[in-house]
C-alpha cells in the first residue's frame, strides 16, 4: 500500500505546531498503525531527522498509553479499537491520513503526538480508591457478591484510562472516565463506605482540572475501547446529586 500522512509536529506546549506531510509506500495491510509510524521513524532516523514522538507501550489495547486522533477520530476509524489495535487494512491504498494528538486544554502537548494526561491521575488521587491498607482485609469469601454485580462492576472497571473520551468530546469532558471509576467502586459492597465523599471529590477534581461539562452527546461511548456505557455517566450524576443532598443534611 501507498499512504500519504499528514502528521502534527509540535516542539512543545509553548510553540505552535503544524501538519507535515510524509509519503510511505510498500506497506502491508497487516501492518499495524503504530508499526507504520515505526517504518516512518526508521526512515527519518536514517536521514538523521528527529522522529515523530508518539506514546505507546503494550501495543495490545490494554495499557491506554497510545493516543492518536486519526482522520479526526480518536483511536482511528474502527469503533472501540485502540490506536495500537488499528491495522492498515482499515484504510485504502492511496489514502491520505491525518494524524493528530489527543487535544484538550487539560492535555497539554509534550511533543508532536505525545500529550500530558496526568490530570487523570489527579482525579483518581482525589478519591478513586477504596481505603483498605495492606493487611487489613477480611477473608475474601466472607462477603458474597452477586455474580451479575461483580460482572457489572467489571464492565466499568475495564476503563483503560486512555483519554479518548476527552479527545472526542466537544466539551473536552472526562465524564466517561470519572464515571467509570465511580461506577466500578459504587457497584461493589466494598465501595459503600466512601461512596459519598468519593463522588464529590472526584467530580470536583474533574472540574478543577479544567475538563468541560458533559452535555450528554455520547460521542465518548462510541470511541471507548472498552465500551464503557453512558449509563455510568447517568449513575455518576445520580450519585453526585444524592451525595450533595445528603451532605446538605
Amino acid at each position: 500500500m501507498k499512504l500519504t500522512l499528514k502528521i502534527w509536529r509540535q516542539e512543545n506546549a509553548k510553540t505552535k505546531g503544524k501538519l507535515v506531510t510524509y509519503k510511505l509506500s510498500d506497506l502491508s495491510p497487516d501492518t499495524s498503525f503504530l508499526e507504520m509510524l515505526d517504518v516512518l521513524n526508521e526512515q527519518l532516523a536514517t536521514k538523521g531527522e528527529p522522529v515523530v514522538e508518539f506514546d505507546h507501550d503494550c501495543r495490545e489495547g490494554i495499557c491506554g498509553q497510545c493516543s492518536l486522533v486519526i482522520n479526526g477520530k480518536a483511536h482511528g476509524p474502527e469503533e472501540h479499537y485502540t490506536t495500537c489495535q488499528t491495522h492498515l487494512r482499515s484504510f485504502n491504498d492511496g489514502d491520505t491520513i491525518t494524524i493528530e494528538p489527543f487535544r484538550a486544554n487539560s492535555f497539554p502537548v509534550i511533543r508532536d503526538l505525545k500529550v500530558d494526561r496526568s490530570a487523570m491521575d489527579r482525579i483518581i488521587q482525589a478519591g478513586g480508591y477504596i481505603s483498605s491498607f495492606t493487611g487489613m482485609a477480611p477473608e475474601a469469601n466472607s462477603m458474597p457478591i452477586h455474580h451479575d454485580i461483580a460482572e457489572s462492576a467489571f464492565d466499568s472497571a475495564a476503563c483503560i484510562g486512555c483519554g479518548a473520551c476527552v479527545a472526542t468530546c466537544k466539551n473536552s469532558s472526562a465524564a466517561l472516565f470519572v464515571s467509570a471509576k465511580i461506577g466500578h467502586l459504587v457497584k461493589l459492597p466494598q465501595g459503600q463506605v466512601e461512596r459519598n465523599e468519593r463522588v464529590l471529590w472526584m467530580v470536583n477534581a474533574h472540574d478543577d482540572e479544567g475538563f468541560g461539562s458533559c452535555t450528554n452527546i455520547g460521542a465518548c461511548a462510541m470511541v471507548c475501547p472498552q465500551e464503557v456505557q453512558l449509563l455510568d455517566i447517568t449513575r455518576m450524576n445520580y450519585e453526585y446529586n444524592r451525595a450533595v443532598c445528603l451532605s446538605a443534611d
Binding site: 487489613m136 475474601a140 469469601n141 457478591i145 452477586h146 460482572e151 466500578h184 461493589l188 466494598q190
Partner: peptide, 22 residues
C-alpha cells in the same frame, strides 16, 4: 491467600459463581 483478601477489599471485581462466592 492474603493477597486475594486484600485485592477483594480494594475492589477487584474477580469472577464469581452464581452464589456470589469467588
Amino acid at each position: 491467600t492474603n493477597l486475594i483478601d486484600q485485592m477483594v477489599a480494594q475492589g477487584v471485581p474477580f469472577g464469581r459463581e452464581y452464589g456470589g462466592y469467588l
